[in-house]
Write a protein that binds this DNA or RNA. Structure first.
Lengths: 186, 186
DNA sequence: GCGCATCGTTCGTCAAGACGAACGACCGAC
DNA sequence: GTCGGTCGTTCGTCTTGACGAACGATGCGC
């Protein structure tokens, strides 16, 4: 248990301090509300130790932040990607282009893509890693989207979510079909 | 430390079993790779104990799943929302409608909205909870989007991400402007 | 069949996480 | 100024998480 890349304890410490400052509560009060000793919180905020899951969970509840956020370091800034810019996902098909708008932050899995597709052969995707859900909102055009055995026809403004860990498809029915795709690991 | 709603230890146990089954590895091999004792993993998979963060982190790395996923129980199904359907977010402005396409799962914060707006007065938003980031992809029309003190004009296919915990705005410049908005708590 | 390796579970032991107490610092009321 | 309350840090103690060893079960090769 000393060889694996460790949990970001310094990040956890900084997050605990940051979130407590946000609430304006004292260390003693947060500890009291979380039902832990203030000496424990003092140690954690200084980066000492290796807290149990229950301890951290209680603190995330008290500080009213998602548990996973205690493990995230940075704050993004304003970021703009114009149509046609940004890294395209490698594709052997010229009639289907997915551009990465927002890659996943560390130790989480969610990506935001802009998909542009032309009518042609079906874009069938192999199943992704288990637990992946894909959310698609059609912007322009028309497409068949969803599980490979039961795709749904979407018009602009339509939305679908489906498990991305099963065979699925995206097939444009009109030229210059455009969609926003959020790939999320739940 | 006994009064707060506890960490979902049964969920963690089930997740560990599920993910290990997915990898096809034995309990002993996963433990070896994670650098922990197999007796520890055996206990965790049976829901006994209260693991430290380091232990769970090592397991998430070994099982190649996001840390937060060990805390999530369920799997979503296929879900379709047509344009004009779905719960609208309460708005006192008829020229700005945000429809909830995918609400946030438990203990996470991310929502997917479809925004439809008409030119009119600026839609200025108060800052959300600290740590919120908003991703906006413009589908049709034109709009000024982003931090209230420095909004960016977006055309179809353009993307912006900005901190949602500062004053921000969405102002349609053309009729029937439509956008996908992902609100994420990082 | 036997021997070996690996498995998952259980058990006893150790050390670190979490506890409560003590301490000096700080603040507000009198 | 003193007093009381609260603060965050440090310390000693206790409890439990994680360890390695032992065990019975299983599978494979001979």
């Amino acid at each position: 248990m000393s060889q694996s890349p460790g949990a970001p304890l310094a990040v956890i410490a900084a997050s605990l301090q940051r979130e407590r400052r946000r609430t304006g509560l004292s260390l003693a009060e947060v500890a009291r509300r979380a039902g832990i000793a203030k000496s424990t919180l003092s140690q954690l905020e200084s980066g000492a130790g290796n807290p149990s899951v229950e301890t951290l969970w209680a603190l995330s509840v008290t500080l009213d932040v998602p548990f996973a956020q205690l493990f995230e370091p940075n704050r993004p800034r304003v970021r703009v990607v114009r149509k046609g810019e940004g890294p395209a996902v490698a594709s052997e098909r010229a009639d289907y282009v997915a551009t990465v708008l927002s890659p996943s932050p560390p130790n989480a899995r969610r990506d935001v893509y802009l998909v542009t597709a032309q009518p042609g052969e079906e874009r069938a995707s192999d199943p992704h890693m288990p637990g992946v859900v894909e959310h698609v909102v059609l912007s322009t055009g028309r497409a068949l989207v969803g599980p490979a055995d039961d795709p749904v026809e979407l018009a602009p403004g339509d939305y679908i979510a489906y498990p991305g860990d099963l065979p699925h498809t995206f097939r444009a029915l009109e030229p210059d079909t455009m969609a926003v795709l959020v790939s999320e690991h739940v």
